[in-house]
Design a protein around this nucleic acid. Structure first.
Length: 447
RNA sequence: CGGGGCGUAGCGCAGCCUGGUAGCGCAUCUGCUUUGGGAGCAGAGGGUCGCAGGUUCGAAUCCUGCCGCCCCGACCA
């Protein structure tokens, strides 16, 4: 992509509204533009990150056996009246009327609708287990939106719903999602630890929040140090096999947010193993049994010939929130530092003398070679000044940037900068593309 | 929803107290000079001063109402 044809309205100064790093950088780097409190337009650069995150989420959902579908943003109120939540849900739910006066709402979540859909198409236990998911925009009319996309009113969320015959089967579905979540966040270059969450009226141990540990998260996390260092389960994990040992390994050590914190249990953790950090919730999974299937009459016939209410669970990932959360985890004074798998482009190519025949030719050949090797390139072919180009590259945070200028070209060299470390190396023009392509491929490899 | 604050050019701000018809920096456009970390000089364009009433000869400025946005708290993917 040539920068001269892209739309990248960067800002030199920080808009007054933005307080935290991710919000500031997303506005300054031309990723988003606010349209109302907690409602943002996604500009081309921001959208590319959003799509990368979505893609990883989808791959890992599919790997775990979930099947993608898509439900609408607007829902009829009667579904919610069936479950009883139409009155229970407060003013956070955006209620609207269509032209004929029918009550509708902009969905804050989709349990009712998915229950209706599965109820309509499922008769036998032989159709279970079933996991369905979609990635869709939601709206919650928060009293106080803040932190940019991390707590918007409109947000993109992946939500999965599981359907099983028995609580035991539902637990297996839950564990699949648990493992899928560990892998999903790890692949984005961040580590989210599962912490015990309030299981609600069902009780038990089947409710976890996945918390991304950062310096200035929204909630406090009390954690056994061992948890933060555990790598995600590998790609060879058998989702059809026994996931209990894996689950036990991740949940036996103490991990709670402030609201679930238990001083007594915390005291039992060895002093040396305790750590308290800030975290951002990026995922939440829970099992809720027949909470919706019962009032909505979603049943299947079991092997015993009887009708059974379907056992359900739901599993969310805050996709748009993750864009901000990842920046919170990876940034410096100059801007975000994107992990390769979620970077809007893998590599920037900076032409220091756009319009010069030699520089243009060298850049174009380099870009073609990089793209030929699967590297996504943002080619800065503008006539802007060098300093501006460098600052902009740092601000948008691409993992690699190649600087091509007349000075280096005299010796057939270019400069490759690694954003994360700030390291700059002189490389032969002929070698640059394959060197970067190799690093990018390595970073994208699914393990 | 309690407490605080802010709406003036695309962005960051001054002007308001003490009314006299709008200004600075950045960005944008033109020209010249520059050119390896957000350049210099000269010139130019761009604003119903959030909206609506009111007071006044005259309102960005004073008064009233409304709207929007931000921060702290409570609440939440």
């Amino acid at each position: 992509m040539r920068l001269s044809r892209f739309y990248l309205p960067t800002l030199k100064e920080t808009p007054g509204d933005a307080q935290i790093a991710s919000h500031r950088f997303m506005l300054r780097a031309g990723m988003i533009r606010q349209q109302a409190a907690g409602i943002y337009a996604w500009l081309p650069l921001g959208l590319r990150v959003l799509r990368k995150i979505e893609a990883i989420v989808r791959e890992e959902q599919d790997r775990a056996g979930a099947v993608e579908m898509l439900m609408p943003t607007i829902q009829p109120a009667n579904l919610w009246q069936e479950s009883g939540r139409y009155d229970a849900y407060g003013p956070e739910m955006l209620r609207i009327e269509d032209r004929s006066g029918r009550e509708m709402l902009y969905g804050p979540t989709n349990e009712e609708m998915i229950t209706e859909i599965v109820r309509a198409g499922t008769r036998s236990y032989k159709q279970l287990p079933l996991m369905l998911y979609h990635v869709q925009w939601k709206f919650r009319d928060e009293l106080r939106p803040r932190f940019g996309v991390m707590r918007g009113r409109e947000f993109l969320m992946k939500d999965t719903y599981s359907f099983d015959l028995t609580p035991e089967d539902a637990r297996r579905s839950y564990l699949k999602m648990f493992v899928a979540y560990l892998r999903t966040f790890e692949r984005m270059g961040v580590r989210a630890v599962p912490v015990r969450a309030d299981p609600g009226p069902i009780g038990g141990d089947l409710s976890h929040e996945f918390v991304l540990l950062t310096e200035n998260g929204e909630s406090e996390v009390f954690l056994h140090k061992g948890l933060a260092d555990l790598p995600a389960p590998g790609v060879d994990t058998d989702f059809g096999g026994d996931l209990e040992p894996l689950f036990a390994e991740r949940t036996s050590l103490y991990a709670r947010t402030d609201e679930m914190h238990d001083e007594g249990l915390w005291a039992e953790v060895g002093e040396a193993d305790r750590t308290t950090l800030k975290g951002i919730e990026v995922g939440h999974i829970f099992y809720f049994g027949n909470k919706y299937s019962e009032p909505m009459g979603a049943k299947v016939q079991g092997p015993d010939g009887q009708e059974h209410e379907i056992e359900m669970g739901s599993y969310g990932i805050g996709v748009s929130r993750l864009v901000g959360a990842i920046i919170e985890a990876h940034n410096d004074e100059a801007g975000p530092i994107w992990p390769v798998p979620v970077a809007p482009f893998h590599c920037g190519v900076v032409n220091l003398k756009a319009g010069d025949a030699e520089a243009d030719a060298a850049c174009e050949a380099l870009v073609a070679e990089l793209e030929g090797q699967g590297v996504e390139v943002l080619y800065d072919d503008t006539g802007d000044r060098a300093g501006e180009k460098f600052a902009r590259m740092d601000l948008i945070g691409l993992p690699y940037a190649v600087t091509v200028g007349p000075r280096g070209l005299k010796e057939g060299k270019v400069e490759v900068k690694t954003r994360a470390t700030g390291e700059k190396q002189e490389v032969a023009l002929a070698d640059a593309a394959s060197m970067i392509a190799e690093r990018v491929r390595d970073a994208l490899a699914v393990r």
